[in-house]
Design a protein around this nucleic acid. Structure first.
Length: 264
DNA sequence: ATAAATGTTAAGAA
DNA sequence: GTTCTTAACATTTA
């Protein structure tokens, strides 16, 4: 489920536990989501520490705890975060539960493509991203042009999915962006004209900002004019003129677009 | 039952 | 050395 906008929503779910101490940690240590992580240190250090802050960059989240402890979370394809009352009993896919006296903070992920990382230190961990966020002013025309140049032969759809250039963009956001910018998804990055490049940047900023505002706050639906409502159903149509959408695998992912709005 | 799902990454090819 | 493509990962749902 989670791309930039959904990640923002899930990150906020744990806000309820801000300021409170962790009194117990439950986790399924052999599950794939803990690959490469020291679960023993995670458990030992987090118990007794206070949850102080959370941030998100792209699809990555970083939760800060007192005592120089940091928890990195990635939701993968099916991860969610939520809170329950303290008497909550964890289910099969609830791989990490941080218990506080009043609240349980839960990370659930049926498909296990998500990831939990633990870090100790005064500074944020080395794996914490430094790429410009796509909704910020640092995401400049120059930056976009440079990034596309480095991936000039790949289809633009595949380039949009690269997290080191477009952090937070996933499959639905990429299709939404290309549809708004009126660019065919299989176009090679190098083939974009200057106006297309600027339309691409504009659409990226629009979709990320509006997505964060609408979905990121309470998971409400974007307006019916958005492509997102059409892209998963068979028989989906272009919101602009109701023409049937095209569908193909591009950049390894199912891609939906309108051949009229986004000509070759 | 078979395919596909809003993601990442290792491995091999170009 | 870098960039590009594909397969694999684990589980649920249509």
């Amino acid at each position: 489920m989670p791309e930039l906008a959904e990640v923002e929503y899930y990150r906020k779910q744990w806000d309820e536990g801000l300021g409170a101490k962790i009194v117990a940690v439950e986790l399924h240590a052999r599950k794939r989501v803990f690959r490469g992580s020291n679960t023993r240190a995670l458990r030992e250090q987090l118990i007794g520490s206070r949850f102080t802050e959370s941030t998100a960059r792209g699809k990555q989240m970083l939760f800060r705890f007192s005592g120089a402890n940091w928890l990195g979370l990635h939701l993968g394809m099916s991860g969610t975060l939520r809170t329950e009352r303290a008497d909550f009993t964890s289910g099969k896919h609830d791989h990490l539960v941080l218990r506080q006296t009043k609240t349980a903070l839960i990370f659930r992920d049926p498909r296990l493509f998500g990831r939990v990382r633990f870090h100790r230190g005064e500074a944020a961990p080395a794996w914490w991203s430094t790429a410009p966020e796509i909704a910020s002013d640092d995401f400049s025309g120059r930056y976009v042009a440079d990034f596309l140049k480095r991936h000039s032969r790949a289809p633009i759809k595949a380039v949009l999915l690269l997290q080191n250039g477009f952090p937070g963009v996933g499959n639905w956001m990429a299709d939404e962006i290309l549809w708004r910018a009126r660019i065919a998804p299989e176009t090679r990055a190098a083939a974009l004209s200057l106006p297309q490049l600027s339309a691409l940047r504009r659409a990226t900023r629009f979709v990320s900002r509006e997505g964060m505002r609408i979905i990121g706050n309470d998971f409400s639906d974007p307006p019916p004019s958005w492509l997102i409502h059409q892209r998963w159903k068979t028989g989906g149509v272009c919101p602009r003129h109701k023409r049937p959408l095209a569908r193909a695998t591009i950049g390894g992912r199912t891609t939906t677009w309108c051949e009229k709005c986004q000509p070759k």
